[in-house]
Design a binder for these strands. Sequence first.
DNA 1: CTTCTTTACGGCCAGCGTAATTATG
DNA 2: CATAATTACGCTGGCCGTAAAGAAG
Lengths: 107, 107
Amino acid sequence: MSLDQLRYFVAVAETGSTHAASVRACVSQPPLSRQIRALEAEVGVPLFQRTSRGMLLRPAGVTFLQHARSILGAVDAAVVAARGHAGHVAAGSALEWTEAPPADGRG
Amino acid sequence: MSLDQLRYFVAVAETGSTHAASVRACVSQPPLSRQIRALEAEVGVPLFQRTSRGMLLRPAGVTFLQHARSILGAVDAAVVAARGHAGHVAAGSALEWTEAPPADGRG
DNA sequence: CTTCTTTACGGCCAGCGTAATTATG
DNA sequence: CATAATTACGCTGGCCGTAAAGAAG
């Protein structure tokens, strides 16, 4: 399970085909198709119905799509929230180490 | 950014050291330390304060921890929710393809 | 010296991309 | 034949684990 698999899944779910999804995700169809397969294997339930017209979302896929979007959004929100603390100190907190770290030249 | 990085981060945040975290996550310290570094680089904010006693969570880390737990929980919930559709059909729905897929012997 | 984190080095698995195959209308 | 997904094959990159180094009490 990986975040990329979730992104690929959303792309396929939203476009209805691995071709459009591969363009959206900037990868070729084979890797994308494999990741979708791997994702389905991991959740243990087929998320799509393969047809000659493309990829049709199944009920489990619809449910998973909502969760996938939520997770992806949460990941972005986590980064934004953490960045919101850049240079901040916890005013009124008893945590002294909230002060900026010493200039120990990391890197 | 990966789910493993999130798991490692939670382990370090909860144990306060890379040693205990590495035991908890079943990996050695170096890979874990590298992933934490990579995570901090990706979010663009130092999440921990390195001390000779271990890893101290910084305010940004506290915030990120809450999000990380939520994300990890959401991932698990997504799988459980999708599995809840196993063998189900959308009763009353117009979606015929909710029936089980044909036995095409994939894999 | 002891404890803890980080950097260096070597080997392995996973994932990507191109080309070929199968299924449908 | 045209379209769409999947499988086969070779290669590169990232990650892990062991060993060594730097920092603090």
